[in-house]
Nucleic acid binder design. Sequence first.
RNA 1: GCCGGGGUCGCUUAGCCUGGUAGAGCGCCAGCCUGGAAAGCUGGUGUCCGCAAGGACACAAGGGUUCAAAUCCCUUUCCCGGCGCCA
Length: 433
Amino acid sequence: MLDIKLIREKPDIVRENIARRHDPEKLELLDRVIETDLKWRELTQRVNELRRRRNVVSSEIGRAMKAGGDASSLRAEAAEIPSKLSELESLMSINQEQLRDGLMRLPNMLHDSVPYGRDDHDNVVVKTWGKKPEFGFIPKGHAELASSLGVADFERGAKAAGSGFYYLRNELALMNHAIQMYAVDFLLKRGYSLIEPPYMIKRSAYEGVTDLADFESVMYKVDGEDLYLIATSEHAMGTMLQDETLLAESLPIKLVGVSPCFRREIGAHGKYTKGLFRVHQFHKVEQFIFSLPEQSWGLHEELQRNCEQLYEGLGLHYRVVNVCTGDIGSIAAKKYDTEVWMADGEFREIGSNSNCTDYQARRLNVKYRLKEGAPPEGFVHTLNNTALASSRTMIAVLEQHQQEDGTISVPKALQPYMGGVKVIDGSLNRLGL
RNA sequence: GCCGGGGUCGCUUAGCCUGGUAGAGCGCCAGCCUGGAAAGCUGGUGUCCGCAAGGACACAAGGGUUCAAAUCCCUUUCCCGGCGCCA
């Protein structure tokens, strides 16, 4: 959420920011917000005046009664106020709701270093690490590799839960855990605090961390309860400190969250959906930071280096793009996507690193104070970056470390977390399925 | 799930029975005092509207009663204690 004062005082800068994002609908929305705000301020003044009158008359009645006098004429005047007031108040609350609703939909202010562009074709590659693997044979996709090794079962996943679900077995199920532990250990060593959050949270908490549209297209709702399955632990960590005022010296608060992630993926038609790439359930290790405003840009780069080192430790060829103005989400001020090389020759997103500045914090109402007992100084900044998403990391490992005989060599960094398994060859499969 | 107690301005708390300006202590900020500090004294301390003067709002959340609600009533929520159920 943007500061309404910024919109009042510098509407042109806000308008220009939205224009850079190529979102004409939001430009109209901005005009409506400005109009609604004007109306709201006018209503506020009228309501305040009426309330003041009520307070004055009421206290006069109180005084008259204490003195044993007659308050009937004052009472007559006072009796007329509530109906007028409630009429105005209901107008104001409708107006206020519209204002907040509009404000919630306006996107964050972009950082100057975000490249101008229309869509994902205009994202700028800022780094490439490693080289395209040389195979000497035609590499296979991960779904085919995993199925023929018997370590993933997509058919039975679909039978049990529908398309987008899967069973992992043996070595790949082990790797799923190994990836998470590898990332967690790495971040614990760098001073992050490990969080296992609630896997479902209520709507009012959720609205602080995400786009309202996500409720329709992304989140699973629990029937009959005010609960939504989290789409990432980012959401549960963001809301963890909702409505709190933090002590400046305790910042930055660096968290590493581990959780399953649940996503409906409505509207994913036509996108790449093979195997484990776009699924309804996966595990993710997530980095999340609450920081002082002046710390956030440095930390954004730190988060990026963390995930890069994790990929490098797995020997994965990747590149980083600076996501352009037309492709960046509404909450982020700047975003790096890390993309990993896949066997069909494409780079695809494996993680995403956002500095949300004070946009998310304002929604969540997370502030900071300079000293114990001092009044709040302002809103904190929030940042989030994938450490490792287990599903997509498994894809990368399977496809980049496949061997000619269809087996997979396990990266050294994962072996200790997999009971020493060096090669995935299906030999743990005792089921015959 | 049932019964009981509770949630007050950063912290501790008064006020609730019996409706009538949300008060105190601590913390924090500023000023005075001081060679400097501490102590002491004075004012301030959250959100919103307003150029300002000033005003409105805020007692877990939302409703209701009333001229007027922290206070009375209802619903929800969280915490504590007891009972029940249970991995």
